[in-house]
């Protein structure tokens, strides 16, 4: 792969955990690169180490083996150049929608000296981006699952990271909401073209969103089974013949990986 365009990459990454006194390997020898402005989907069934992979890329944890690099520099910890969207939303229930989006800006403002009003304006702009204008003063418990995750996305975008990492962001949503959230994600991604790593266990979601799909093996330790290009034009139609054919192909690859 051409090094110059690789934005964030995993190089021989391995990770294991201690569980009940036994070492359980979760990831092993995982290598792939994400190109700049690319939307890469990591596809794998439950218990294949997807979340761990994303946490390593986020820098929340350090790999036991190998290395995560960003623009060739090893990742040593979490940073605002990467934005993470959590599977279980992780909104702060004691803050309003606006307050939740403002957290990062508030932390940043203490260093850069940006005023509270500036933070507020920016937070409002990103809430508008995810279609939540008018809900600024709601508390998370007053929102539906889809709306909660919109807040989660706005919160991650608000600090304007270079790479967005999304950990099964729509896993808890119903099919209808999920579809509209996927469309929304694609729209946002096309609008600002940030490098995006999107983790999912849903093949439709993967084919709908991805430039390329990294398929994980379906058992621990997670290894890379294959990387597949998705050369379909956007926006994609899940009922389109080419879409369905690709979907079938990837299903077969996944079965093989199991």
């Amino acid at each position: 792969m051409d090094r110059t365009v690789v934005h964030i990459e995993c190089d021989g990454v391995g990770k294991s955990y201690l569980q009940k006194g036994r070492t359980v390997p979760v990831l092993e020898g995982l290598s792939f690169g994400v190109r700049e402005r690319e939307l890469l989907v990591v596809l794998g069934p439950g218990q294949s180490g997807k979340t761990t992979l994303l946490r390593l890329m986020a820098g929340l944890e350090a790999p036991d083996a190998g290395c995560v690099r960003m623009h060739g520099e090893p990742v040593t910890g979490p940073g605002t150049d990467r934005g993470l969207v959590f599977q279980s939303y992780m909104l702060f229930p004691w803050l309003t929608v606006l307050g939740n989006v403002e957290i990062g800006l508030d932390i940043q403002g203490r260093r850069t000296g940006a005023t509270r009003a500036q933070a507020r304006d920016k937070a409002r702009a990103y809430l508008d981006m995810v279609g939540l204008s008018g809900f600024e003063d709601y508390f998370p418990h007053q929102l539906s699952g889809g709306m909660k995750q919109r807040v989660g996305i706005a919160r991650a975008y608000a600090l304007e990271p270079q790479v967005m990492l999304l950990d099964e962001p729509f896993g808890q949503l119903d099919a209808q909401t999920r579809l509209s959230m996927e469309q929304e994600t694609e729209r946002i991604w096309r609008a600002n073209r940030k490098t995006m790593v999107f983790v999912t266990n849903n093949i439709d979601e993967a084919v709908y969103l991805a430039d390329r799909i990294a398929i994980l093996e379906g058992k621990l330790p997670g290894r890379l089974a294959a990387i597949r290009d998705v050369p379909l034009p956007r926006p994609r139609d899940p009922m389109d013949v080419a879409f369905l054919r690709l979907r079938e192909e990837i299903t077969a690859m996944q079965k093989l990986a199991l």
């Binding site: 929340l60 979490p78 940073g79 993470l84 959590f86 279980s88 702060f92």
Partner: peptide, 14 residues
Amino acid sequence: IDEEMYDVVRMLGG
């Protein structure tokens, strides 16, 4: 407290 709550702040540079 759910430890992931702290991860949110860590990711946001806290």
